[in-house]
Design a binder for these strands. Structure first.
Length: 493
RNA sequence: GGUUUCGUGGCCGAGUGGCUAGGCACCGGUCUGCAAAACCGAUUACAGCGGUUCGAAUCCGCUCGAAACCUCCA
């Protein structure tokens, strides 16, 4: 591992050399979804971003334990249903058990992630399965004097914590500003201070999801689950904590406070945050009601979509932007990404059919030398996938020249070229081929007959017939391309 | 109002002091019976103003504009 991997740490707001606490082992925790609705395009961003991180760290030889939680309790709603849990609300509306709702949407989330070729995390803990751990941690925070109990609820005491540790160091917030700017919300009269946050909430009678605790029958607060579960599976101090930028405050800030208060240590060394996906310049999200679900992208059934977009098109679209940049959605941008993705995939299949020559052209030689260097340099620079993709398009150019027999490559260079392209495209970027029915044997045989008949017509200069065959196939979504070695066909999705 | 960011060509999107990113679209050429694809070439840029510098998209200041967070949110 002679790589100098730099990662942007939100805590220091700089790129830092990545040095695991216990190399070659790496512990990574990422905030997963709250399962009360279908995953939308915004959910694909952290899924794919941290999949890229997971894949690249593993490629470099690290033994990564990747923990991504499922939030199936907690997260209070702050609208009319004050005090009622999102999962419970949805359940009551649909006359389902809360756990039934959580199961339903986590199954659908898993399907979407698998469609996007996102690898499963090593451990996927559920908040509801770790109530005991959360209660134990709250006890520790109380014992340390950084929390107080009121009427069966427990709140984190931000002011007393701030006397010993800096509250706000992750998000750059200052206590005094928070004090003067925190909005007065209803139902907060139990708190000593508006910025205090709940560690445990006593359940109201109508609240279905509840567990016994030393303080009341209730449920854990907003931020407890991630603190408790990351500590359980990765230790009290681990390497990487990831999530969306919108979780920076208060969620991650509070996680730091909870871990510091309970365990006397920062939970992790590196904080990584992916940026938002925007639509017309605005964040795509539930609260703005401008989101498009992944299923809608895959089947095209949404008013904002010109047509369906495949999972790999979405994945490629996301990887073409750096994970810390906002990424603006539009049909035009998605279609551009799709074309680029297909061009890349066509080149891969051409590469696998290339014939080697006795030697490699000199310019290609120097490219083959720079290609891995530049590609690794891009990934080592805070997972810069757009630069890696630009490198891959350079490779595409050479592959096409080779396929056109305008350039030559030796057997050993060809083997290495194939290996590198496969490593970067499939192993690291996690793209995959999305073929139609090209691999179906009977369809393939049928197409050979059609192509042969068309070739006969062409040889007889009966272009009316040959064009008719080509046009009719195009109507069916099958594209014919004439090359020097005969015609080929592909299915357009 | 506070905190954190951002403003790059027709669209998306890299790039942090001198060295053409890349993709998509458009135009010209090569190839082709014609297409498509591919290859070659051309074109469109760094919000505005000022400053630092031999030199700034890149650093500094101001102005204008946008976003996220400050309340659940990926």
């Amino acid at each position: 591992m002679d790589h100098k991997l730099q990662v942007y740490n939100t805590l220091s707001r700089t790129k830092e050399l990545f040095q695991p606490l216990n190399s070659p082992r790496v512990g990574m925790y990422v905030c997963g979804p709250t399962v009360y609705g279908d995953a939308h395009l915004g959910h694909a961003r952290p899924g794919i971003t941290f999949d890229l991180v997971f894949r690249y760290l593993q490629h470099l030889g690290y033994k990564v334990r990747y923990v991504r939680n499922i939030t199936d309790v907690g997260h209070l709603e702050n609208d009319a249903d004050q005090g009622e849990d999102k999962i419970a609300k949805k359940a009551r509306l649909e006359q389902l058990e809360p756990m039934e709702v959580a199961q339903h949407f986590s199954d659908r989330y898993h399907l979407n992630m698998s469609q996007l070729n996102v690898l499963n995390p090593s451990i996927e803990p559920r908040a509801s399965g770790h109530i005991i751990e959360q209660i134990e941690m709250i006890k520790k925070i109380l014992a340390a004097g950084f929390a107080y109990e009121v009427n069966g609820s427990v709140y984190f005491d931000v002011l007393s914590y701030n006397k010993k540790y800096p509250y706000g160091k992750l998000s750059g917030r200052v206590i005094d500003d928070l004090l003067s700017n925190t909005r007065a919300l209803e139902g907060q009269e139990e708190k000593r201070n508006p910025m205090d946050f709940a560690l445990w909430k006593k359940a109201q009678p109508e609240h279905i999801m509840r567990w016994p605790s030393p303080w009341s029958d209730g449920f854990p607060g907003w931020h407890m689950e991630c603190s408790a579960m990351s500590a359980k599976y990765l230790g009290e101090h681990f390497d990487i904590h990831g999530g969306g930028m919108d979780l920076l405050f208060p969620h991650h800030e509070s996680e730091i406070a909870q871990s510091q208060a309970a365990n006397g240590t920062d939970p992790c060394k590196y904080w990584l945050h992916n940026n938002m996906i925007t639509i017309n310049g605005q964040k795509m999200g539930k609260s703005l009601n401008n989101f498009i679900t992944l299923n809608e992208f895959f089947n095209g059934q949404h008013a904002g979509l010109d047509r369906a977009y495949s999972p790999m098109c979405i994945r490629f679209f996301i990887l073409q932007a750096h994970y810390r940049s906002t990424l603006d959605f539009s049909n035009e941008a998605l279609q551009a990404a799709e074309k680029g993705y297909k061009r890349l995939m066509i080149a891969v299949s051409l590469l696998n059919k290339l014939q080697a020559s006795s030697n490699t052209g000199t310019e290609l030689q120097s490219f083959l030398k720079e290609f891995p260097m530049n590609s690794y340099a891009a990934m080592d620079d805070d997972f810069n996938s757009p630069i890696l993709i630009a490198q891959l398009f350079e490779a595409v150019k050479w592959i096409n020249l080779l396929a056109d027999k305008k350039e030559t490559i030796s057997e050993s260079d060809l083997v290495e070229f194939k290996r590198l392209v496969n490593v970067f495209i499939f192993e690291i970027l996690g793209l995959k081929e999305e073929q139609g029915n090209e691999n179906n044997q009977s369809v393939d045989g049928l197409m050979q007959i059609v192509i042969e008949l068309r070739q006969n017509a062409k040889t007889a200069k009966d272009f009316a017939t040959s064009d008719r065959i080509r046009d009719a196939l195009k109507e069916l979504g099958i594209l014919i391309k004439d090359t020097k070695d005969g015609a080929t066909w592909t299915i357009e999705n």
